[in-house]
Design a protein around this nucleic acid. Structure first.
Lengths: 233, 233
DNA sequence: GATATGCTTCGATGCGCATCGAACTAAGCG
DNA sequence: CGCTTAGTTCGATGCGCATCGAAGCATATC
């Protein structure tokens, strides 16, 4: 019969609470693994910290309630990442003091084609998709808040000129813009109706094709040029 | 004599060790007390942390071996202070995160005084310090690149005229100019040997004084005028 | 010397919490 | 509708460590 964290009676320095969260060996390993910027699943983090899944789960729950990490659910996976830049900065400070060596996690398969571009459900994923997402953000064709993207007026004009029919896109019973967490890059790429349109469009234009028996997308030379010309300033 | 901590065989993240040191709330209280910049004796720290001297002694031994504090012996007194600026910066980072997480209302007068001007280890922090930093930049007494400040020739002349002895400042085993991130303002202020000199100078001139049992700095009327006259065009 | 004060070491105690196995829920796959 | 995999909850266990009283040093003052 314990009082949960919400009922912390004494206003003790929360600095101790935060530090104590990082102060556990297993949790520290998880956090340093997350410092790479990539989102990792609970089991990957368990592996990284050399502990069993139940233990990891308990630790992650604490890190969540301590606002050091956040989580994005996707299917039966839960991807964890550092809450914000302040947490990352804090960890870097700690590292600079303790001068520790970090072991980096290697994510994703060795298949470089898959890594570069592939189909994710109905939209483009992989390194190319992540770069695309970043470029759309940089050109302010979309904006992002709390990992949820939205199209801008400028973006609507841009995609209309490219041939997108927003009356149909909006009619679809699904969000127009959605962020999907990339399997190999562990970063956001564009999903939703608009993400689907981008993929369908590039396939229709014969800029690229899907390899048989694979999710890999292979650009042809002319198509890659056209793709770049359109989306990368 | 124990060699436990010194004999950490595993190259596991020392980050956990350091964080764990801060993670105990008695130790956290001591460290935040030391963030005030004053060297404190073991018993004062025990009082600060609300523990008995034996407990404090044990904690201080750990903080020492963890290189978070250092000690100066004088007679039968032992004065403790934070080891270096990195430790102070780390603590401020922690404060900024834990302050954000709990975000209890309370913008009381005590808080606003702290927000305005306070001691950060050995230099001035808070709104006033941030404004000072900006003013020094605007007058080109210092320059900044990638968040690392440096003094200009004009700045050297300025501070020399104000009474600073650069032969001594440079002799100190620490950088002359350093940027410290302010937790309340989220912007840089001046640290390093020069930052220390500025604080020491204004205290010596009786422009301001440090409130007892607090990190807050309170200007008197004449001092504030003098401070403005010197640093703000 | 004697006495007081600052600090540390020692030993005993007890709470906190990290850990894991087993059982359970959730989400795909066929 | 089973089968597989991801993740969580639960209960039991045990180690770590913060804590304090009492005694031991050390350094002062008289």
């Amino acid at each position: 019969m314990r009082i949960e964290l919400s009922g912390k009676t004494d206003m003790q320095p929360n600095i101790a609470i935060v530090a104590n969260l990082i102060g556990d060996n297993a949790r520290a390993k998880m956090l340093t693994a997350l410092l790479g910027g990539k989102a990792l699943t609970a089991t990957e983090l368990a592996l990284e910290a050399d502990i069993m899944p139940p233990t990891a789960s308990s630790h992650l729950a604490k890190l969540l309630s301590g606002d050091l990490v956040c989580v994005r659910k996707q299917g039966r996976h839960k991807y964890f990442q550092l809450k914000d830049h302040a947490v990352a900065a804090l960890l870097e400070q700690l590292l600079s003091i303790s001068a520790a060596s970090t072991n980096v996690v290697t994510t994703g398969p060795a298949d470089s084609a898959l890594r570069q571009a592939r189909v994710c459900y109905d939209h483009l994923a992989g390194e190319t998709a992540v770069m695309l997402y970043d470029s759309l953000l940089a050109q302010q064709l979309i904006t992002e808040q709390l990992h949820t993207p939205a199209i801008t007026d400028k973006g609507v004009a841009f995609f209309q000129q490219a041939g997108a029919d927003f009356s149909r896109l909006n009619a679809a019973n699904r969000p127009l813009c959605k962020a999907c967490l990339d399997w190999s890059e562990r970063r956001s790429h564009l999903a939703g109706a608009l993400g689907h349109w981008v993929l369908a469009d590039m396939l229709n234009n014969n800029w690229a094709s899907q390899e048989p028996d694979s999710r890999a997308i292979r650009f042809n030379a002319k198509g890659l040029a056209a793709f770049r010309r359109r989306y990368f300033t």
